[in-house]
């Protein structure tokens, strides 16, 4: 079945089962491989994308439910890798293996759009769904504060 998805401002015609998780449509059909698979059951956050302003786990979001909505993936965060969150991540050398980081960044971007100056508590809450096996949490926390600071100036 042909379905139209709007990803990063562009329409993609996707021929797939409407029950297919959005994650696999983004990766295999739209060919955007920055969004990752980690658990398939909304537990790890590797697949996080932003749908209509909210961070969602694309691995358990059926394709059909994303129709007509604005989907943002890591590829749509900035053209030149220079969104404040990306810059802060680079400055504080957050990523290690990097595999979880697309999801971490999407969660952080969604958080900062809602709460431009989050407290540690808010950060903990917003980021609790994103696992990082490399344990980069202390740097993520610091980088979110740094990104908030950068966005102000």
């Amino acid at each position: 079945m042909a379905i139209t998805l709007n990803i990063n401002g562009q329409d993609h015609m996707i021929d797939a089962d409407p029950q297919m998780p959005l994650l696999w449509a983004i990766r295999e059909k739209a060919g955007l491989s920055g969004t990752k698979f980690g658990c398939g059951i909304a537990q790890c956050g590797a697949c996080t994308v932003i749908v209509d302003g909210n961070a969602v786990r694309s691995c358990n979001t059926p394709l059909a439910s994303a129709v007509g909505k604005a989907i943002r993936t890591i590829e749509g965060v900035s053209v030149n890798n220079d969104h404040p969150v990306q810059l802060a991540w680079q400055e504080l050398t957050v990523p290690q293996c990097g595999y979880c980081q697309s999801g971490q960044i999407m969660s952080a971007v969604a958080l900062l759009e809602k709460s431009p100056n989050p407290s540690d508590n808010e950060i903990d809450k917003a980021m609790a769904g994103n696992i990082c096996r490399c344990g980069t949490y202390p740097r993520i926390r610091a980088a979110i504060h740094r990104a908030a600071e950068m966005s102000k100036t």
């Binding site: 955007l32 491989s33 920055g34 969004t35 990752k36 698979f37 993936t73 890591i74 590829e75 965060v77 900035s78 890798n81 990306q86 991540w89 680079q90 050398t93 957050v94 990523p95 990097g98 595999y99 980081q101 697309s102 960044i105």
Partner: peptide, 18 residues
């Protein structure tokens, strides 16, 4: 700073799954 950091902030780093 590790050389590959920036490829891991925009989804361009390539893993076997990609």
């Amino acid at each position: 700073k590790r050389l590959d950091v920036s490829s891991k902030t925009n989804g361009t780093a390539v893993y076997p799954i990609d």
